[in-house]
Amino acid sequence: MIRAVIVINDQGKPRLVKFYEYQPVEKQQEIIRNIYGVLCSRAENVSNFVQDSTFGPDTRLVYKTFATLYFIVIFDESENELAILDLMQVFVETLDKCFSNVCELDIVFNFNKVHTILDEIILGGQVVEMSSSEVVKSIEDISWLEKNPNSITRVSKSISSWQGR
């Protein structure tokens, strides 16, 4: 199970924090501080894996840097480390498609949208969708609904293609 998805910048400022097992806010901040302490001391060209009991018992951590940001996933041993790296790549590729060349500022000012995107990828600590194009499709439907809040639902192409099967 995925326990948390965290994005912080290279100064340690949180940009996205999502825990799938409730943690009080002080505990969340303590975990984020610990992670930042470990990650900023790591050299380039080392592995993407860190194991440290301060993140919680039996947990593993995978991180990936994109420009000024660290993307971090904390998870337990029921997940495959490299597959979690794939997951982070899918998340970032999806952000890239939604914001066309995502940068830190996009995430700062659109943290609510980033939550929306994350919810299409992970649910209850499990991956719900690994196809970036499927995620983008759902996000397009959601944006349409936001602009047309009086309609019940968008009749998208995906519905007709699904019914045609």
Binding site: S100, V108, K113, I142, W144
Partner: peptide
């Protein structure tokens, strides 16, 4: 991306950043 923005929220985030 077309998800709608909110001005008051952006102003607040900007203030915090500054």
């Amino acid at each position: 991306m077309a998800l709608s923005g909110m001005r008051g929220l952006s102003v607040f985030i900007s203030d915090v950043r500054n």
